[in-house]
Simulated assay, not measured.
Amino acid sequence: MCTRDSKAGKRVSATTSNKSTPHKTAGKTLVVTVRDALRAQIESGTYQPGNRLPSEAQLTREFDVSRTVVREAIAALRADRLVEPRQGAGIFVLDPPQSHDLPFQNIDFVRISSMIELLELRTAVEVEAAALAATRRSPSQEENIIDCYRDLGNLAKAGAPTSQADFALHLAIADATNNPRFREFLSMIGPSVIPRRALNEGTNERASQTYLKVIDAEHEQIVAAILEGNEAAARDAMRHHLKGSQSRYRALLRGSNTPG
């Protein structure tokens, strides 16, 4: 079955008598567990701006982890500007950072020009993702790519919406790079990165089916190249797919009635 979530992160288990120790969630590393627990304490006011965090030794005992885990968790909080070290004094909680608009949130997904802009950005990233997936994928990741591709095809044949399944396939390819930043990039944009989701897929069922057949053929080439471990072919197939989408939506922008 095609999965929508990445499988990264080792499972951890540890026991401690300290009541502050968070439950270890499957899929989370100890660093992430400690980081999230400290973040929650800061956000809840347990540690307020200006407060000093417990010493490294105290946190090591509190969470029943190594000093390395504590240091990496603190480093992650520093990167988020939640805490800062002060020479000879310790780690102190900062005022909450000012909120800023997240990237990609101001895109008007109804405008075809926005679709083209995103397709250009996706091309710059996903072409290389396909090439990396061809050389780095694991057997389980191959299976997930195949499952996602089959799910997409079955939905298309049934006349059901396919944009979510299309997004899942691209996420599966991103996961197969074994570089989590590729999934993070796609997830940050979200499922609306699939243009037809924003353009009312299925309004014209005949045109939609014609379009989906073209997309299916392109996806088949991408999947086949990845499974064969052909880096160059995977790169070319993904480029052809995304460049083709750009061309189709530019035709729409010029006044064509359908993207097919």
Rank of each mutant, 00 (worst) to 15 (best):
S6T: 10
K10T: 13
R11K: 11
V12A: 06
V12I: 06
K19D: 13
S20C: 07
T21L: 07
H23L: 04
H23N: 00
V31Q: 03
T33Q: 10
A37L: 07
R39Y: 01
Q41T: 00
Q41P: 08
P49V: 08
P49D: 12
G50S: 08
N51C: 08
N51I: 12
R52K: 09
L53T: 02
S55T: 15
S55G: 12
E56Y: 11
A57C: 13
Q58W: 14
L59N: 02
R61T: 14
E62F: 14
V65K: 01
V70F: 05
R71V: 14
R78P: 00
A79W: 06
R81C: 11
V83A: 06
P85R: 02
G88D: 00
G90K: 00
F92H: 12
L102E: 05
F104L: 03
I107Y: 04
I107P: 01
I107H: 01
F109I: 08
F109P: 09
R111E: 10
R111N: 14
R111G: 15
M115E: 08
I116R: 15
E117K: 03
L119Y: 05
L119W: 10
A124S: 00
A124L: 11
E126V: 00
A133V: 04
R136A: 06
P139K: 12
Q141I: 02
Y149A: 14
R150C: 05
R150W: 03
L152R: 08
N154W: 13
L155N: 06
A156Q: 09
K157A: 15
A158H: 00
A158P: 00
A158E: 00
A158D: 01
T162N: 10
D166A: 00
F167Q: 05
A168V: 07
L171S: 11
A172R: 02
A172T: 04
A174T: 05
A176D: 05
T177Y: 00
P180R: 06
P180G: 07
R181Q: 11
F182H: 01
F182R: 02
L186A: 08
L186M: 10
S187Q: 15
V193L: 15
R196C: 14
R197V: 12
E201Q: 13
G202Q: 10
E205N: 06
A207E: 11
S208D: 13
Y211R: 14
L212V: 08
L212F: 07
V214I: 11
E220F: 04
E220A: 10
A224D: 02
A224M: 03
A224K: 02
A224E: 08
A225L: 03
I226Q: 09
E228T: 11
A232N: 04
A234E: 09
A234N: 02
S245Y: 10
Q246W: 05
S256Q: 08
N257E: 15
P259I: 07
